[in-house]
């Protein structure tokens, strides 16, 4: 099963600062719902785990995220992520286009367009209404990013 998902939200922060935050992927991991960074393989490849939990359904994926393209001038990056489900035959893959656009001097829109492919029994769950899951997870991600960017923890000692 493949599907395209598209989500966007806005943060109250200039585009340059938002880009600096996202240009360092390990920094973003705590905001990815259920995600854990297991290993930095090289500058553009990371090994990680993603846990998905929707009501009683829980699936754990282990896999890789690879930065395919990064364009600082256009505030855009392309990533490929893929992982195997743990404990059940199944796989999830996605090619993600991440981009920032300036709303005004103090506001930035964060947009994600992803082509997601899911195989195995998970694709059947809920009759395949998996778009809703992506929306739910993205909302959690957006909430976390807004919290982190707009209310940064004071740096210890400063």
């Amino acid at each position: 099963m493949t599907l395209q998902v598209e989500h966007a939200f806005t943060v109250d922060m200039p585009i340059g600062e938002v880009w600096d935050y996202f240009a360092d992927p390990p920094q973003v991991v705590p905001c990815l719902p259920g995600a854990e960074l297991l290993e930095i393989i090289n500058e553009t490849t990371y090994r990680g785990a993603v846990g998905l939990r929707v009501g009683p359904i829980a699936a754990q994926f282990h896999g890789k995220a690879e930065l395919l393209e990064i364009d600082a001038a256009q505030h855009m990056m392309r990533l490929r992520v893929g992982g195997d489900q743990q404990g059940s035959p199944g796989r999830a893959e996605a090619e993600i286009l991440f981009s920032l656009s300036q709303v005004d001097n103090s506001q930035t829109e964060i947009k994600i367009v992803a082509d997601v492919g899911i195989s195995g029994r998970l694709a059947q769950v809920g009759g395949g209404m998996i778009q809703s899951v992506s929306k739910f997870m993205f909302n959690q991600f957006a909430k976390c990013i807004i919290k982190v960017l707009e209310n940064p923890e004071p740096t210890p000692g400063s």
Binding site: P56, I57, A58, A59, Q85, G87, S88, R121, V125
Partner: peptide, 13 residues
Amino acid sequence: TELLVVMKEGLAS
């Protein structure tokens, strides 16, 4: 009838 099916499929534990 719902729970045990997803547990058997490894989608819930």
